[in-house]
Design a protein around this nucleic acid. Structure first.
Length: 594
RNA sequence: GCGCCCGUAGCUCAAUUGGAUAGAGCACCAGACUACGAAUCUGGGGGUUGGAGGUUCGAGUCCUUCCGGGCGCGCCA
């Protein structure tokens, strides 16, 4: 077992079982062994007595005393004290903590890997930006959170697929095609003004960003003037719409993939809404729901309070979402007979269900919060409750520079593009900064802070800790060319000199990496990895700085080979844990800062 | 009007998912460099966790209610 906390928990459970022989399993499951907040309370604490007192019909303090007594017999446990209302505080034999280092060194970056997920099949869908323009800051957070969450679940033992859903079927992409067509007309030298053109578009010209100019030029190169009237004005859509739409989506997706690659996001599966509809899967899905009696023609109540001015009762094709926990039944067809987005999305999620996943996780923008209950209802209905649907909502990101709001708009008009952000900040800092917040809380992304080479930039601070570790190991290799400094070799070092409290603090942190991974995976909260690394880096920098005043805490001590070797083991293990965490976040560890 | 999310130090955010005295960074105050890289470090001040009730051994966390902010609320995706 590589998780020291899990191991000690087994010891506690054994002691508890001795004190309360017939304890129900569901009570035992609630027993926790956690790191203490304050080291004055020892190394670990357990709530065993408090959670089982009622079932055991004993006072918590008395039960705690019995558990503590039993635990004191264990050689790994140096002290076991009853505290507060019934905690048992444990102080471990320091050698037990130190024994974590060889475990880390032998495991390498696999340290923290867990079997928690039991190979459960999970599909994580994220980004899924409409192919109507360049990716922007709003997509970025979902991309990073989704990617890190998928990595996290994989590390925790789930069988994970990363997926992108291309929303290429709705009215939006038709509007996009019209916008590209406008750039095409410009490219061939039309005399129309933008206003004249907009008047000719159903619904008006929507996408006016410069990013479609190259698309228009590409269309002009490929098709000459064939898509326009002889006087270079709007030709009948039958002539060009399908071709232009296809070409534009293709080019937009190509650009999105470039952005994703730059961001370090590499999804396994790209699913197309259009392909899904064209295959007949959507209609088949509706037919099946119909056959199951989950669809009816009905009229919805008007929304309470603010009723839209043009509201009027109207019969619709509705899905019985309320039977599965939603607030209201949801429409599946528009009045022109085509499917709503929701209808196609049911089909898409059914596609995922049929690919045999146990859990479907959608990473969505917070503006989709209202969409979650209906999708949850749909997945329950189509999978007969076999598959679990979850959503991770990402709140809005405000870009600021030195406290002032930023609106970059080189190409796209009103929003900050991902590409601009990557140009300025770089992939690793973008990812780290995005993950240094809980996903469902609004965040400010400070550009100055993200590129700062100081402690206030967590991305830098963690990278710096890793670089320092590597720097020490390089220096050691130079000083002792004959010695083997591989992690495996260091795992055999005599560690008994690692007794300073700064040493112990760092080792305690390393010991809690496996439980951090599991807790973060269960909560679907990748930001916890970032905070763990920040704390770990803090412990390491602290130790480094202590070496200024106390030379026995320096990592390289020429006249003390045994101590040096122990400290190198500590450094190497720290570097491994940092890399293990950065890997989850999709951030590349650096060997040196320059 | 209803639903979901949020409200924590002056600012940006944590808090081991119900655990012990609510923690970091920035900012502020006072100190520290002939260095395994000071790209920093040490110490200090700063809180009625929006308000009020409740649940229990124990509440920032759960329940009720009010206040304030964000998002959503029949054929947008």
């Amino acid at each position: 077992m590589t998780d020291l906390f899990a191991s000690i928990r087994q010891t506690v459970l054994a002691a508890l079982a001795a004190a309360v022989p017939d304890l129900p399993p569901d009570i035992a499951a609630r027993v926790e062994v956690t790191p203490t907040r304050d080291t004055a309370h020892g190394d670990m604490a357990t709530n065993a007595a408090m959670v089982s007192a009622k079932a055991a019909r004993q006072a918590p303090a008395k039960l705690a005393a019995a558990i503590a007594e039993a635990l004191r017999a264990d050689p790994a446990i140096q002290k076991a004290d009853v505290a507060g209302p019934g905690f048992v505080n444990l102080t471990l034999d320091p050698a037990v903590f130190r024994a974590v280092l060889p475990v880390v060194l032998r495991a390498g970056e696999a340290y923290g890997d867990s079997t928690l997920g039991k190979a459960t099949r999970v599909n994580v869908e994220y980004v899924s930006a409409n192919p109507t323009g360049p990716m922007h800051i709003g997509h970025c957070r979902g991309a990073v959170v989704g990617d890190a969450l998928a990595n996290l679940l994989a590390k925790a033992g789930y069988n994970v697929t990363k997926e992108y859903y291309i929303n290429d079927a709705g009215a939006q992409v038709a509007a996009l095609a019209w916008a590209a067509y406008w750039r095409y007309l410009q490219a061939i030298g039309t005399a129309m003004t933008e206003e004249e053109f907009s008047a000719a578009v159903p619904g008006g010209l929507q996408y006016r960003g410069d990013y479609l100019i190259p698309v228009g030029e590409e269309l002009a190169r490929a098709h000459g003037t064939a898509f326009a009237t002889p006087d270079k004005t709007v030709a009948p859509p039958d002539l060009w719409l399908d071709t232009v739409r296809e070409k534009t989506i293709d080019l937009m997706m190509r650009e999105i993939r470039v952005d994703l690659k730059r961001l370090g996001v590499d999804q396994d599966v790209f699913s197309s809404e259009r392909a899904l509809v064209a295959s007949g899967a959507a209609d088949a899905m509706l037919a099946k729901l119909e056959a199951d009696g989950l669809i009816y023609e009905g009229v919805l109540e008007p929304p309470k309070g603010k009723t839209p001015d043009d509201w009027e009762p109207r019969p619709q094709t509705l899905f019985r979402a309320t039977e599965f926990g939603d607030d209201v039944d949801r429409p599946l067809r528009k009045s022109d007979g085509s499917n709503t987005y929701f209808a196609n999305d049911i089909a898409y999620h059914n596609d995922k269900v049929s690919r045999n996943y146990d859990i479907l996780i959608d990473v969505l923008g917070a503006d989709h919060g209202g969409y979650v209950p209906r999708m949850k209802a749909a997945v329950r209905a189509i999978s007969q409750d076999r598959v679990k649907f979850e959503a991770v909502l990402c709140q809005i990101v405000h870009i600021v520079r030195g406290g002032e709001p930023v609106r970059m708009s080189k190409r796209a008009g009103t929003y900050v593009t991902l590409s601009d952000l990557l140009d300025e900040v770089g992939r690793d800092a973008v990812r780290f900064t995005m993950l240094f917040r809980k996903a469902d809380a609004q965040m400010e992304f400070d550009l100055d802070q993200a590129i700062a080479q100081t402690r206030e930039n967590p991305a830098f601070y963690v990278q710096y800790a890793h670089a320092r570790c590597r720097s020490v190991l390089r220096a050691a290799a130079e000083a002792q060319p004959a010695a083997s400094l591989t992690p495996e070799a260091l795992a055999d070092a005599d560690l008994s000199s690692l007794t300073d409290e700064a040493d112990t603090a760092l080792i305690r942190r390393l010991a809690s990496w496996p439980r951090t991974v599991e807790a973060a995976a269960i909560a679907r909260e990748p930001h916890r990895i970032a905070f763990f690394l920040y704390d770990l880096a803090g412990d390491f920098h602290m130790l480094w700085n202590r070496g200024r005043d106390d030379s026995t805490l320096r990592f390289l001590q020429a006249d003390r080979p045994v101590e040096t070797r122990a400290r190198l083991a500590l450094v190497a293990a720290t570097a491994i844990a940092i890399r293990s965490g950065l890997r989850v976040m999709g951030v590349e560890p650096v060997e040196e800062m320059r």
